[in-house]
Nucleic acid binder design. Structure first.
Lengths: 197, 197
DNA sequence: TAACATTTGTCTATTGTTTAGACAGATCAA
DNA sequence: TTGATCTGTCTAAACAATAGACAAATGTTA
């Protein structure tokens, strides 16, 4: 496994930024490598040093974003917020924080001709996270189909994030968190993060 | 006069970004070169390749911003907005556009311990611009002290920009432009841009 | 104020990224 | 079908970024 140097990452980040800008302007499909290097202000050779083609690059960006979400969930409690977390666990804050911090990129879900596969992979990542990192307790003794339940919760949370993104992040991060808490009080009362047990 | 390469400018921009972030975090005075290179993720040697010290760098950033304002005024009419410009000339739109586009940097006026001299140089630049690029017609036949008048108009416009910045750009660019137009209807009816004559 | 630690500014040699330019083949548009 | 543009690959050369050392200046603490 090769480590990527700081310099290489810097260059790749410039390309990712350029790609995102161009997707918003003209859509993914019509973008050429020439467009990319002009936007990013690099030589065409430089692009090929880092990527084989624009699809590899799009994958790289997409994986980075999805991986970032997963990492956010696993963050230790250092960065815990000074907010009443009675009903919402820390991981949810970290996810929201990460999305907001990377909002320029997550904004890509507002476009149709965007990172290939993003519209499927992003909700799927939320599902994954709920499957792998969260445990639930049922309230009362009525039996629940846990698989359905996780789908329900995961996609519900994704829906909230989605509407926040689609609204152009009108609400501040803190306002949004409060909204989510209010909603969770009525609907996801039983969520428990494994790390909390 | 040496031309700076694209690569050099890219590096300098990273440093300028880092400087701005650090000013907002800890103020200008206490920033060391070490802090800067850590924030910008460069080697300390690299900093000294581009700048003699942090003051030279701060000057560079400050001049870039002021110069950008002046260039905005001189922009041709290509980028003219599709808005009713009856009462406000194109240059005002360009200034507002530039400030918004560079809002991360102009935000620096909200800090006390910031780019040295910025709190004087910025309003002065507005004055300069009014002196050098705008001509006025007096309405009616009462004589007006033109020097006073330009100070009045220039600082007034700066005040509007300032409160927009200080409010964290709450209003959208278009909303703000409309506000300015409304105000200008009552107060700066006689402004004429030389290029418009 | 003495001792210690940190930061500064300058310098060299080395590393490694970015570059220009060429090429044949693929794709696009008229 | 022709001409134009874009692709992917490859070189050698240009150049920016780096590690590391140094003496001097500055800051900190006892």
């Amino acid at each position: 496994m090769y480590e990527e140097s700081v310099r290489q990452n810097r260059t790749k980040n410039h390309f990712k930024l350029a790609l995102t800008e161009l997707i918003k302007e003209q859509g993914f499909y019509s973008i050429t490598v020439k467009d990319l290097v002009e936007q990013a202000q690099y030589n065409r050779s430089t692009f090929y040093v880092h990527y084989h083609d624009k699809f590899e690059m799009a994958d790289d960006l997409q994986h980075e974003l999805l991986h970032g979400l997963e990492e956010a969930v696993q963050l230790p409690y250092k960065r815990r917020r000074t907010i009443n977390t009675e009903k919402l666990n820390t991981s949810h804050f970290e996810i929201i924080s990460y999305v907001y911090q990377q909002r320029f990129y997550f904004d890509l879900i507002n476009y149709d001709d965007t990172l290939p596969g993003l519209h499927r992979s992003l909700p799927n990542k939320f599902l994954d996270i709920y499957k792998n990192y969260f445990a639930f307790e049922t309230i009362g003794d009525q039996p629940v189909n846990m698989d359905y339940f996780k789908h329900y919760i995961a996609l519900g949370f994704y829906g909230l994030i989605q509407s926040w993104i689609q609204g152009g992040f009108q609400e501040s991060q803190d306002d949004f968190i409060h909204e989510v808490i209010e909603l969770s009080k009525t609907h996801i009362r039983s969520v428990q993060y494994i790390g909390d047990l």
